[in-house]
């Protein structure tokens, strides 16, 4: 047994993981909170992405929009992350081999990498294109990546429940 599978099996069988799994209400409630967290996170981030693509709020400066929206995005991220970890603990053993779950983890890693690159490069010079109707190519590229990756994460996340092994 691989150490990772061993770890997942251990998580799964902890009293905490077992309690969530065996409770009638815990899993559905946590899953609902997880979905609302994703809505908050992806919903707000998509507005920023659509602004970078020049598709919405075109008269609002990018940095101003970013400053006002991003606290809500982070709020959604915290909710999504904590509830996601709880869901994982309760079904870690099953998730381990689930292809949709594995794809979701890869996409989550990539979606984290995207803003890291964007913020250390193009976004640093945001003052030079803050009010531009057409933003730099790299900003538009980052927006497209973000939209596709988050979309993929939602799709993969939902498919986890369909691809039980």
């Amino acid at each position: 047994m691989s150490p990772l599978l061993h770890f997942c099996t251990w998580l799964y069988s902890t009293p905490f993981g077992t309690a969530i799994r065996e409770s009638d209400y815990a899993f559905p409630i946590i899953e609902t909170i997880h979905t609302l967290g994703i809505t908050l996170l992806v919903g707000t981030i998509s507005v920023i992405d659509l602004r970078l693509l020049g598709l919405t709020l075109r008269h609002v400066s990018v940095s101003k929009l970013y400053r006002q929206i991003i606290p809500w995005t982070w709020g959604g991220f915290v909710v999504m992350f904590i509830s996601g970890v709880l869901l994982f603990i309760s079904e870690a053993k099953d998730n381990y081999g689930n292809p949709a779950f594995r794809i979701k983890l890869i996409l989550l890693f990539l979606v984290g990498l995207n803003p890291l690159i964007f913020h250390t490069t193009t976004f640093r010079e945001v003052h030079t294109w803050d009010l531009a109707k057409i933003t730099p190519v790299r900003a538009r590229l980052a927006a497209v990546f973000s939209l596709c990756l988050w979309g993929g994460i939602i799709v993969a996340g939902r498919i986890i429940a369909y691809s039980h092994n």
Binding site: T35, T39, V42, G43, T44, S46, V47, I154, V155, R158
Partner: peptide, 17 residues
């Protein structure tokens, strides 16, 4: 269902803002 959820995310963000 997946398309329904993708639209939900976009909708939720717009309503919230």
């Amino acid at each position: 269902e997946v398309v329904h959820l993708l639209a939900l995310a976009i909708f939720g963000g717009a309503v919230l803002l």
